[in-house]
């Protein structure tokens, strides 16, 4: 079966709040997606739906053209890794991995053992005895070693120190290269992981803000630096996400593709054009005054 994801007209209503508002998305199989959004944007709700943890209030979610929810043949291809609470979990790490192996059709035991070693997981310890970071590493090991065609990590690295997170990112990239599958990463550590993303999805207050390949998205952002007056006149007709000024020097972050003519004009005006990181784009695109204009 194909594993393309089709999300169509998905709405989620929680009593008085609208958690997701008319989401339409198509996620082609085999790519690494970054799902970004501020707190309460609806990321976890969207991922819960993909993971069959809940149903949308309305709309459809399909994998390879087939409904996911409660469909045995489809559900088993999706794994949703989230920051689970293991404070009461008395199972040993080893048993947790074995349980997943028992049920996940593509689980690779050797790879799980390898990852456990990479993360230095104490296999014979009870989950509740592990540090938060180690628990997260167990989650990540289960998620990666399941090799599910759709693998979702929702803030899966909480509590992990920087070296461990680095191992996670490296292993993810490497394994994805060898075993291509759809991986969706929801994260607040944007700057750390943006190099992993092939496509970026931004949600804001339950609505889709943008879905684009990362290179296209980054091309749309530019930092214009120069004398304040020159910068102001250059960006007059553009969508400015953010400005900073230091003395007479100003930097404006603009959104929208700059054509060759504009680049030449900037050069002639003595302005410097720089790139904008995904992190900066994310921060400023989701600011209230910018949301409607970038949509």
């Amino acid at each position: 079966m194909s594993f393309d994801i089709e999300i169509s007209k998905v709405n989620v209503q929680y009593s008085s709040t609208k958690a997701l508002d008319h989401i339409d998305l198509r996620l082609q199989y085999g790519k690494i997606y970054g799902l970004l959004g501020r707190n309460g944007a609806g990321k976890t709700t969207l991922l819960s739906i993909l993971g069959s943890f809940m149903e949308p209030t309305s709309g459809t979610v399909r994998l390879g053209g087939r409904q996911i929810f409660e469909q045995r043949e489809v559900m088993q291809h999706v794994i949703f890794v989230y920051d689970a609470d293991y404070k009461e979990e008395t199972e040993k790490v080893q048993d947790m991995l074995e349980a997943v192996e028992h049920y996940r059709p593509h689980f690779d035991r050797e790879y799980a053992d390898y990852l456990a070693e990479r993360f230095k997981l104490p296999l014979q310890k009870k989950m509740k005895e592990l540090s938060k970071g180690q628990q997260s590493a167990v989650n990540i090991t289960m998620g990666l070693a399941s090799r599910s065609p759709v693998t979702i990590f929702d803030e899966a690295y909480l509590g992990m120190d920087a070296p461990s997170r680095d191992i996670f990112y490296r292993e993810l990239l490497e394994d994805h290269a060898q075993h291509p599958r759809t991986i969706i990463l929801s994260t607040h550590h944007v700057s750390e992981v943006e190099h992993l993303f092939e496509e970026v999805i931004m949600l804001h207050e339950g609505r889709l803000l943008i879905h684009a390949p990362i290179d296209q998205l980054l091309e749309r952002g530019a930092a214009v630096t120069g004398a304040a007056q020159d910068v102001d006149s250059f960006v007059k007709e553009m969508k400015v996400l953010h400005t900073e000024q230091l003395g007479g020097t100003k930097q404006a972050m603009v959104f929208g593709n700059l054509g060759e003519a504009q680049r030449q004009a900037a050069k002639q005006a003595g302005l410097e054009l720089g790139i904008v990181s995904l992190q900066q784009l994310f921060i400023h695109m989701t600011e209230e005054e910018n949301v409607n204009e970038v949509r």
Binding site: S52, E70, R72, F80, Y103, R104, S148
Partner: peptide
Amino acid sequence: TFFVKQGLTRKD
């Protein structure tokens, strides 16, 4: 909770 996490249905 465990079974749904492992991709099994509520029905099963």
